[in-house]
Each structure stands twice: as structure tokens, then as C-alpha cells.
Nucleic acid binder design. Structure first.
Length: 302
DNA sequence: AAGCCTTTGAAGCTA
DNA sequence: TAGCTTCAAAGGCTT
């Protein structure tokens, strides 16, 4: 019942008319502010962007950097400094000007990203698979929906750490305040397009690759995400936009800053900073690490 | 038990 | 405003 409700709500959303219009080539959506208004207009695609992204075709053998196993377009300017040029600030589909880093996990033949060029898309005419995850579900506060079902974004902060009964008279004011804070349910961030894609495809990858480690699975999913066509990705971007919209309606006062800095900073990062004096860059790596030669996995390994 | 790994994208923070 | 950081999910692994 629960799942059915969730899935039907999800599939209902999937049948919303696309913002770009049915049958049209989906255009990149501009970033939206909190009021869901475009922060700026979508700029015209640069020649570089077009070169990277369109049309989405299978690369010729020469189009694949055999040494690193990374798909890079021919005759591109030297962008070796770029690892992932996120262009969300430019109002473009971010995937179009980035390529994945070399795999750190050895990938099996059925799961290696080389085997997934071209993208493992369904046969022409095959309806797009329906989403089966409960992330985008209508919860309490949504008219016409049973109020008993909470939105999955809400999770109890306390979790397993239930407070043990003890003499309450010993509690200080600060303690009770902290307790109140802890008991307040945490509203999670809405999922972005890639997260929605991961939720949808994780089970498939696990089944195909007989993997369980999320880190390895996420690497594969990241490569498959890059292998998706613009149209396929656009569906997830649109879904994520609806997710944010719904999240805003359910929690009008919520801000991502509510959860900002709540997780502990990585001890490793602290260690790295203290030992090297370096800081993580925007790509999540350290300058020394990024400069190291990429590991080459020969085809025989894959 | 808590945090790491790994991915991309959104949004917060800082200089 | 650009650049950097954090957090969303997931589950096995490490500390």
C-alpha cells in the first residue's frame, strides 16, 4: 500500500507535461532561485559546449583516449586542467563539459564504462522506464494525500541514539536545549538529478555487476550518467526541479543551511591539511593527488 | 559507532 | 562574484 501510493505519486509526476514541450529537443533549464524563478537567462551554447555535447553519438575509436580510457572529443582545445567543469552556473546541462576520472575500482567487462559507449540505452521506441523510488512522494501537507505518510526527506535526527531514561532533574538547560534540537526531525536536502538517477539505477547495476560496494557502484553510475543522452538526462533534471519545487512547498522555511556543517568534517581532510598544508579543491582532490599520473587499466584487466 | 569511499548537482560559505 | 565546501544516497569497509 505504502509503495503503491509512493509509486503512483511518482509516476503521476512523471507524466507531467515536460517544461520544454513534448517532442521538442529539451533545452537546458536555467538555474532557479528560491522562488523558482530563473536567476538568469540561458546563454547560447558555446561552440565548445556544442562540440562536447551534441549530437550525442558513439565516439569513433580514435575518439577515445586509449591511454586513460577516457572519452574525449577530437580537436578540442587543451583542457587538461579541467576534470569536471560544472557549468550549472552557466545554465547548461552540467554533464556536457566534463568527463569522468579514470576508474579507481577495476570494473568487470559487463560494467566497465568502455563497454557502455554508446550509452546502454533502450531500443528506439522503448518507453522510458518508470521511476520506482519513493524519493519524490507526496507526504503530509499535500492536499488529497494521507497525512500519515511523511515525506522521506524527514528523518529523525536522533536515529538509533535514543536517550536513555535518567533523572531529569540532573538535566541542565543547555542539555535540554540540545536534546530538543536532537529530537527535531531533520529535513534532508531534495535529491538532485544525479541522485535521482542513482536511486533509479542502483539496483540494476548491482544486479548486473554483482557489486555491493556503493563507492564502486557510484563510479559506474557516474560513467553511465555521462553516457546518457541529453534527452535522457533532461528527464532527471526536470524531475529534480519538481522535487525541489515540492520540497519548497512542503517546507517553506527550510534552507540547506539548516543541515550545513552538521556532519563532521572528514578527519582525513583535516589530516591532509595539517600534513601538507593543502586544501581540497573544487574537484574534491588535493593538488598533489590531482597531479599524479592517472592509473592505467589495460583492456585485459577490464 | 562513526566516518570514509565514490559519484554529480544544488546551495551555502568565504574572500 | 568566483572559488571552495558541504550534503544529499548507498552499503561495505576502516578506524
Amino acid at each position: 500500500m505504502y509503495k503503491e501510493t509512493v509509486y503512483s505519486a511518482f509516476n503521476l509526476l512523471m507524466h507531467y507535461p515536460p517544461a520544454s514541450g513534448a517532442g521538442q529537443h529539451p533545452q537546458p533549464q536555467p538555474p532557479l532561485n528560491k522562488a523558482n524563478q530563473p536567476t538568469h537567462s540561458v546563454p547560447q551554447l558555446s561552440p565548445l559546449y556544442e562540440h562536447f555535447s551534441s549530437p550525442h553519438t558513439t565516439p569513433a575509436p580514435s575518439d577515445i583516449n586509449q591511454k586513460q580510457g577516457v572519452h574525449r572529443p577530437l580537436q578540442t582545445p587543451d583542457l587538461s586542467g579541467f576534470y569536471s567543469l560544472t557549468s550549472s552556473s552557466m545554465g547548461q546541462l552540467p554533464h556536457t563539459v566534463s568527463w569522468p576520472s579514470p576508474p579507481l575500482y577495476p570494473l568487470s567487462p559487463s560494467c566497465g564504462y568502455r563497454q557502455h559507449f554508446p550509452a546502454p540505452t533502450a531500443a528506439p521506441g522503448t518507453p522510458y522506464p518508470r521511476f520506482t523510488h519513493p524519493s519524490l512522494m507526496l507526504g503530509s501537507g499535500v492536499p488529497g494525500h494521507p497525512a500519515a505518510i511523511p515525506h522521506p526527506a524527514i528523518v529523525p535526527t536522533s536515529g538509533k541514539q535514543e536517550l536513555q531514561p535518567y533523572d531529569r532533574s540532573l538535566k541542565t538547560q543547555a542539555e535540554s536545549k540540545a536534546e530538543k534540537e536532537a529530537k527535531k526531525p531533520t529535513i534532508k536536502k531534495p535529491l538532485n538529478a544525479f541522485m535521482l538517477y542513482m536511486k533509479e539505477m542502483r539496483a540494476k547495476v548491482i544486479a548486473e555487476c554483482t557489486l555491493k560496494e556503493s563507492a564502486a557502484i557510484n563510479q559506474i553510475l557516474g560513467r553511465r550518467w555521462h553516457a546518457l543522452s541529453r534527452e535522457e538526462q533532461a528527464k532527471y533534471y526536470e524531475l529534480a526541479r519538481k522535487e525541489r519545487q515540492l520540497h519548497m512547498q512542503l517546507y517553506p522555511g527550510w534552507s540547506a543551511r539548516d543541515n550545513y556543517g552538521k556532519k563532521k568534517r572528514r578527519s582525513r581532510e583535516k589530516h591532509q591539511e595539517s600534513t601538507t598544508g593543502g586544501k581540497r579543491n573544487a574537484f574534491g582532490t588535493y593538488p598533489e593527488k590531482a597531479a599524479a599520473p592517472a592509473p592505467f587499466l589495460p583492456m585485459t584487466v577490464l
